Amino acid sequence: MTTDTPARLLQLLSLLQTPREWPGGELAERLGVSRRTVRRDIDRLRELGYPVQATLGADGGYRLVAGKAMPPLVLDDEEAVAIAVGLRAGAGHAVEGVDEASVRALAKLEQVLPSRLRHRVSTLQAATTPLTSGDGARIAPETLTVMASTVAGHERLRFAYRAGDGTESRRLTEPYRLVSTGRRWYLVAYDLDRDDWRTFRVDRVSDPFATGARFAPRELPTGSAAEYLRRSIQRRQETYEFTVAFAAPADVVAARLPGWLGTPEPDGERGCVVRGATGDPVEWLAIRLAMAGVDFVVREPAELVECVRELGGRLSRAGG
């Protein structure tokens, strides 16, 4: 019998977070208490914001349902390790969709993981090889979690940086946002030594160190970190402009394309147009546009038009 009420509540919450309905009698047996105590504990959880739903019947049942807010979760050892490994894998490969929010979640989780579980996570990751490929550089998840923590906490970040030409330097920054382009992670930050905004490829960062010094966030020159990164890449690379018309509303296309490619603009009743610039190979852009899962027509440049035509023919032949 569990006489410690907080411990019993945590155990009850852990059971309820399993996606099933629990009869009151089974919960009482699991916890070693009476059904009346179970009912009181359910009321305590509701007072804490957990949406526990009760069903009528001979035995009655309880289940945790979706509420208006996200209450704290209780994870057992295996669940915590599984989530940490999954987030680390996504963060380390700059998987599109695993953005800054996911990295922040990883930072929070690893901060509270006991050392024994942290060791299990590291061991499991070191012993596995992901079946992925591409030209995106791999990044140590620890680098991303340190950066995400300083972004969220408005804390100055110091790190070593290797530029594209091989020049190495030490940087002291006020980190603003982490941005994933699908192949790479970038840090948008204010460089205190150069007194200006900069973008840094995270795979070229080493020895990130949170200084502990807080700062008041500055206003970014452009509306969003993704837009600032897109313009920064355009200035540094030999880029080409492109225009693509999609047979879907702007909000649908915006949800399926990375923001740095450009902002969809309405075009007609049910279509939209994306205008942007990139230094990526036309082959990669063609594939990325196709991954949106929406019919589209490339208007320019001619090289991208020809690439899409060849790619379409190749895929048609491959499908018989």
Rank of each mutant, 00 (worst) to 15 (best):
L9C: 12
R20Q: 12
P23M: 03
P23S: 02
E26W: 05
G32C: 12
T37S: 08
V38D: 00
R40L: 11
R46A: 07
T55S: 06
A58L: 03
L64E: 03
L64H: 03
V65C: 01
V65G: 00
A69P: 04
A69D: 15
D77F: 10
E79I: 10
A91T: 09
A94C: 05
V98C: 11
V112W: 08
V112D: 10
L113P: 04
R120I: 14
V121K: 09
A126M: 14
D135K: 09
G136L: 06
L144V: 08
L144W: 05
T145W: 08
S149C: 12
G153W: 10
L157T: 00
R158N: 00
A163G: 11
L172E: 02
T173E: 00
Y176G: 00
R177S: 08
L178N: 02
R183D: 15
R194F: 01
F200T: 01
R201W: 05
V202G: 02
V205H: 02
S206M: 06
S206A: 08
S206V: 09
D207W: 06
G212K: 03
G212M: 04
A213L: 15
R214H: 08
P217M: 07
E219F: 07
T222E: 15
T222M: 13
R231Q: 10
S232G: 00
Q234N: 10
Q237G: 08
T239L: 06
T243F: 06
F246S: 03
A247G: 01
A248M: 05
G259S: 06
W260R: 01
D267M: 05
G268C: 01
G271Q: 05
C272I: 04
C272A: 06
A277T: 08
T278A: 12
G279Y: 07
G279E: 03
W284N: 11
A286N: 10
I287W: 14
R288K: 15
A290P: 04
A290V: 07
A290L: 14
V294L: 15
L304Y: 05
E310H: 12
S316T: 10
G319N: 14
G319W: 13
